[in-house]
Write a protein that binds this DNA or RNA. Sequence first.
DNA 1: TTCGGAGTGGAATTTTTGTTCTATTCCTGC
DNA 2: GCAGGAATAGAACAAAAATTCCACTCCGAA
Lengths: 277, 277
Amino acid sequence: MTAAPGAPKDYQELRAAIARRAGELPRRLAQVAAYALEFPDEIAFGTVASIAVSAGVQPSALVRFSHALGYHGFTDLQDVFRSRLRERVLNYDERLAQMREHGLASSKSGLVLDGFLEASERSITSYREKLDHEALERAVEVLSEAEIIYLIGLRRSFPIASYLSYAMGKLGVRSILVDGVAGMGSEQAGFISGRDAALTISFAPYASETVALTLAAKTNGASIVSITDSVMSPVAAPADALIEIAEANFEGFRSLATTMAVAMTLAVAVAGRRSGG
Amino acid sequence: MTAAPGAPKDYQELRAAIARRAGELPRRLAQVAAYALEFPDEIAFGTVASIAVSAGVQPSALVRFSHALGYHGFTDLQDVFRSRLRERVLNYDERLAQMREHGLASSKSGLVLDGFLEASERSITSYREKLDHEALERAVEVLSEAEIIYLIGLRRSFPIASYLSYAMGKLGVRSILVDGVAGMGSEQAGFISGRDAALTISFAPYASETVALTLAAKTNGASIVSITDSVMSPVAAPADALIEIAEANFEGFRSLATTMAVAMTLAVAVAGRRSGG
DNA sequence: TTCGGAGTGGAATTTTTGTTCTATTCCTGC
DNA sequence: GCAGGAATAGAACAAAAATTCCACTCCGAA
């Protein structure tokens, strides 16, 4: 009896089995299940003892988990996790080529997805090459000194602004999302004072309302940080700090990957500087 | 003395060391060397006994081989072969070098930015490896058949939902962003009918309102498409199509790069299918 | 509240595994 | 052809691992 009867024989099956039985598993076994899905490599390489420690359970729980899924013991379960790595490594060298082939051949949506993923990668790579590190530093400085940070971004840039609002909220940085709901944009922006800062995100074609709000903030004496795609952008001129990002695009839809990473950076760096980091 | 002194510490170095000393190694040790280069996976996963059999040598030869390369024992050597499998991103070292070149490391915000950029790249790369084309296809199909697509995503996932709202609007796909402004979430969701679909985006810790809205949509007979991080997610069970995305994170902030690319894909693919493309 | 059973933690046990040791073999130089 | 030393095979050993076992806990039903 070398093979386990009725137990998942590859990683995909195993995932499905765990998913199906997620609800009915006892507490500790569910804990093991969650750990296994999150850190499959640990299961593949670790020992019962080491895995038990990092998953926060007893060694016996791992064995019981294996039995619950139909395996003879933990070793059988581990074999599945190891075979997964073996399979992956087979196409490790040819991964890119194979991926492209696979993506093209398999489906139309796969082709589209591949295009967007690749555009994101290109954006990030090219940004790495030409990013202005001083400008980033200046932006962090300006925002750190602001009492309240007004986040201005509409249309395509609204996801960025709303993420910043979420992240800053989580980090304890005071910010206001100027979201233009019910046409309140100008009213919200009207409260901006000289002690505040506006963080504007805008890409071509620049939404006229975004430009207007930014200029209004400037008039009120607030500091301006602009994230945009060109020095020729209408929100570049009034900016005290300018972060320039040229996102790659696929079929006319520009990536947001780099801009999102920059947004995360600003939120974390501002919070870090304020807490005296 | 846990670490081996002067022994190759990664797979590349080890290859080089073996190549350099290939001529001067004794016969059986050379045999082991050849086997190791040809079947690195066997070394990584096998036991001394099993490897000895398939390489046609004695177990002790493996230990002597390890000693000859400067390791304390076979286990140390095996660790190198295992770490090779763990390092998914081959060019990680190159990226680090590139970062130093550009002076990113010289400032704190630069380090943070690099962390987020790298997390985004990792997310995309690892998603490429394990993406489920069929699930994606099914999601597109379900959404294409819906009369109205309700977009459900709060907190960290709200930027994704709002992007979808923007993109679908541009593409002429009817959608409603269930944004919970003024606590209207449940009212908005109440209009969902069996001809509609809900597209839920939710990651751990799953916002309870998101889960509740999704279940309500399901109850009304709507189709459910879930974008989430695990099959154990509470929004996975009711889904007609499930897209699983494990975003990498940096300092606790998870990337949104892959999820955003998937969102773009869904919007474009659904629009494409509806227009008969 | 008490009973019963499923679930759990942790030590004891057994099995597997890596390593060491020594007699023997295989070369090489004389 | 014969020393002498390096290399090897295979068994013996020690370490580490997986698994089992049992007392205890927790929780729901009577």
